[in-house]
Write a protein that binds this DNA or RNA. Structure first.
Length: 508
DNA sequence: GCAAATGATTTGTT
DNA sequence: AACAAATCATTTGC
């Protein structure tokens, strides 16, 4: 912004290209104009414009700028000339360089630059930084010291007539962006960003940055809320043990708009559960071996692996991603709003339950964080969304009538739900209620199938026998699943229904 | 005064 | 170009 320059369309002596000579022609004529007796031989506005152009062009040349500033400050037209932003900037800068800080500040206070000037504000601040450094006897100021300096020495209103702009976006703007992130997408398309930019009066780049920061910080929040140890030493390190997961309700947007991560808080000792990686890779399979009974230690096959750049790690023969249904990620497949409504971060990681399910069934299970669960061990390919998982989890916490029990041999110390099982229980109840499932308070934080599916024939009371993919409606790659009763449901929720029916014993 | 929040920038990758 | 990650600078809340 060059407010106050106003040098377009005025025929003035050329300065550029001649400024290196000791006798700048333009400046010589300018100095002569300044010395005019009784009034300038050039109309005042043009004189001001010429002064501004000279100052701008010569500002980096001390040998030229010094006499120029002296001439301006000694001129009878000083007050007019200083209303040009470039003149004021150069003059104040020179004064500041001469350690005449007070004079520079008075000059800046006195100039009336139309519309203000960010550069002059910056200079004003720089001058006060220097004064503060001098006072403190330091060579640099910390950002906070600078901030306080600015607060103590606000720039004159004439330099920023519209007031100092807040660095943060207005509340309404942020609200709009957050609404979009939680209700539509955290990753808006270019067209959507352009729409948002015009709605919020931000630039598309600002909108992009906002969503990038949003995604990043939501992930960080999740990682902080649900630290999954990468290694044994992580479990004992101060960093890992210092921060307990914050209450999810403290973060109104936690769980809103996060489409690539599960939202549940995770107990610290989540043991063999896969670390939540930040990748958005389509799959993060985890091959489980069935011989975990009674052993709390992490099996080798469960050692966390880093997953870089969405690379797919496959360790089991049944985990060819090409044969798996597509990740539920489209808005049509995973109604985000519904997911968010049902999502409850306070529920312990539902992967735990499904892992247990698979463990007990002596089969393999692999899962991708939050979006996809694949348990071929049950002849089921589950693709619930986060919401479905939450519901599934809630339903599965019903231990006895569904054939679930607490085999201490597999998960002897309630590893998955160590913290505050009571609150989890009430949450589970609430979640289950959303699907008309009566959920008693959780009495045992861990459950497991007592038998593998192959041993479940005949099924225990209320529990279905081994289920084939056909019986359960192996999810086609499409978005609809047909159930045995003829109903169809989107695959966003069929995993939940499967588990609900499973737990209610209505399947099979 | 400190920590957290926030917007922007830089760098590297796909 | 889009994106993630790391980082910086600034602002805010306590």
């Amino acid at each position: 912004m060059r407010s106050g320059s106003g040098d377009e369309g005025v025929s003035l002596p050329q300065v550029v290209g001649t400024q290196r000579g000791p006798t700048c022609l333009a400046m010589q004529s300018f100095l002569q104009l300044l010395r005019g007796n009784g009034g300038p031989s050039l109309p005042l506005p043009e004189l001001v414009t010429l002064a501004g152009r000279l100052c701008r062009d010569l500002q980096d040349d001390p040998t030229q700028v010094q006499p120029l500033v002296t001439a301006v400050l000694d001129s009878q037209f000083r007050l007019y000339l200083l209303d040009n932003a470039d003149v004021a900037l150069v003059c104040a800068s020179v004064l500041a360089q001469r350690e005449q800080h007070q004079a520079a500040c008075r000059l800046l206070e006195g100039c009336q630059v139309p519309g203000g000037s960010p550069k002059l504000v910056q200079l004003w601040n720089d001058i006060h930084y220097r004064l503060a450094m001098k006072r403190l006897g330091v060579s640099t100021l910390t950002p906070v010291q600078k901030f306080r300096c600015r607060k103590r020495n606000p720039p004159p209103a004439s330099l920023c007539p519209n007031g100092l702009k807040s660095r943060n976006f207005p509340r309404e703007v942020r609200q709009k962006l957050e609404d979009f992130a939680s209700g539509v997408s955290t990753n808006p398309s270019k067209a959507e960003r352009e729409d948002l930019a015009s709605e919020t009066h931000l630039t598309t780049e600002q909108v992009y940055n906002w969503f990038a920061n949003y995604r990043r910080r939501q992930r960080a929040l999740m990682q902080r809320a649900a630290p999954a140890p990468d290694s044994a030493e992580d479990l004992t390190s101060g960093e890992a043990s210092r921060h307990l997961p914050p209450q999810p309700t403290d973060h109104p947007h936690l769980g809103s708009g996060l489409v690539d991560r599960p939202q549940w808080s995770r107990p610290e000792k989540s043991g063999p559960l896969q670390t939540l990686e930040t990748t958005q890779g389509p799959w993060e399979p985890l091959a489980l071996t069935p011989d975990l009974s009674g052993d709390e230690t992490m099996p080798k096959s469960l050692a966390p692996r880093s997953l870089q750049g969405g690379e797919i790690h496959q360790e089991g023969p049944n985990h060819d991603p090409a044969t798996l249904p597509p990740v539920c990620s489209g808005p049509g497949l995973c109604p985000l709003a519904a997911a968010n409504d049902m999502l409850d971060p306070s529920l312990a990681a539902p992967e735990s339950w499904l892992m247990s399910l698979a463990l007990a069934s002596s089969k393999e299970v692999s899962f991708q964080t939050g979006q996809l669960i694949h348990s071929r061990g049950l002849d089921v390919t589950m693709r619930p969304t986060d919401a479905a998982l939450a519901v599934s989890f809630a339903a599965l916490r019903e231990p006895s009538p569904t054939g679930f029990a607490d085999p201490p041999s597999i998960n002897p110390q309630g590893t998955y739900l160590e913290e505050d099982p009571g609150s989890c229980g009430s949450q589970a109840e609430q979640q289950a209620g959303n699907l008309q499932v009566t959920q008693p308070p959780a009495q045992a934080p861990n459950f497991i199938l007592t038998q593998s599916p192959s041993d479940l024939t005949p099924a225990p009371p209320g529990f279905p026998g081994p289920m084939s993919a056909v019986e359960l409606g192996q999810p086609p790659p499409s978005s609809q699943v047909q159930w045995s009763d003829g109903q169809t449901s989107s695959d966003a929720f069929w995993g939940a229904r499967m588990l609900l029916e499973l737990s209610a014993g209505s399947l099979g």
